[in-house]
Amino acid sequence: MSKKSRKKSSKTSSGSPTAKTKTAKTRASTQARSAKTQRTPASKSTGTIAKAGSHKAASKQLKSSKSASPPAAAKPGLAEGQKAPAFRLPRDGGDVVTLADYAGRKLVLFFYPRADTPGCTREAIDFTRLADAFAAAGTAVLGISADPLKAQEKFRDKHKLGVPLISDERHEMLEAYGAWGQKSMYGKSFLGILRTTILVGADGKVARVWRNVRVDGHADEVLEAARSL
């Protein structure tokens, strides 16, 4: 083939419409694949971040919902004139005490939060000091808390207490007499023993109720109420 013929053939081949079309398609395909490759990691990364953010939001919402739950409500307390609820519980010394044991007699029930704490100790000592005066008024006195018997007996012996101490570890009597309810300390709410005193008349009905008791002078006030029945 002559030089002139080869130049003409080369020019015809490279400059044909078919060759130009193929070259353009190839270039477009390459650009599309390159763009897709660049987009894919960004898309996956965005999806991962979205999922993580969603999980964190759900966790915060769950925590907030849990911490906002209020403590369980306590049973309403007794009102004056109602019949005193029956009870049967162990007392210091190993005996069992029931409401029926005091039928026909006046009865003072003082509920205290915890044995051998300052306020509870002063209250128990005051009722012990007035034990003879209560007996003269035909009135028995019982102290009640959720402490186990060993703690009650240690409390009795340490302070030479002269009133029976009842152990209500299951809170049955405490709830029945409205001495179990919501309390707060250091900004936190919880259920516990509310310092309460109940005076039961000889007819078995609630004669007086003292709630949120202040210890100083309280035993003397209860004695006067018992004498007036």
Results as ranks from 00 to 15, higher is better:
L109N: 03
S10M: 12
I198L: 11
G93M: 03
P70W: 08
A86H: 01
L107V: 11
A35R: 07
K158I: 07
F155R: 03
T121P: 02
K205P: 07
R208Q: 12
G15K: 10
K4Q: 08
Q152R: 01
E172G: 09
K25Q: 14
E123I: 09
G204F: 01
R208Y: 05
K83P: 00
K56H: 08
Q182W: 05
L142Q: 00
S228V: 05
K22N: 09
K188Y: 10
S59F: 10
L194Y: 06
A35K: 09
S189K: 09
S184F: 03
G77S: 02
A24T: 02
D95P: 04
T197M: 10
S64A: 09
T196L: 05
K8G: 08
T117C: 08
D126F: 03
H218K: 05
A100C: 06
R6N: 08
G187N: 02
E224R: 12
R88V: 08
T30H: 10
D220M: 11
A226F: 00
V97L: 00
S45C: 01
V215K: 09
P164I: 10
S64N: 02
A219L: 02
F87Q: 06
P70S: 14
R211K: 15
F127G: 00
L194W: 08
K63D: 10
L149V: 15
P70K: 13
S54F: 14
V163W: 02
R195Q: 11
Q82L: 01
P41F: 13
G94K: 06
R195K: 14
V209E: 09
Y186K: 06
L161P: 01
E172L: 11
V97S: 01
K154C: 08
L161T: 02
V209N: 15
G143A: 15
A57F: 08
K205F: 05
E169C: 07
T128C: 03
A140G: 11
P70Y: 06
I144E: 06
K66H: 07
P71C: 04
K188R: 13
K20Y: 05
R211A: 08
K160V: 01
A179R: 10
G47A: 15
L191K: 14
I193G: 00
P76G: 08
G104W: 05
G119V: 05
A140P: 05
P148G: 12
R91Q: 11
S228C: 04
K36D: 15
R156L: 01
T26I: 14
A135V: 01
S29P: 00
I49T: 12
H55L: 14
R227P: 07
G15A: 13
P71R: 05
R227Y: 07
H218D: 07
I166T: 03
D147A: 01
L165T: 01
T139L: 11
P113M: 12
S5I: 13
S145F: 04
H171V: 09
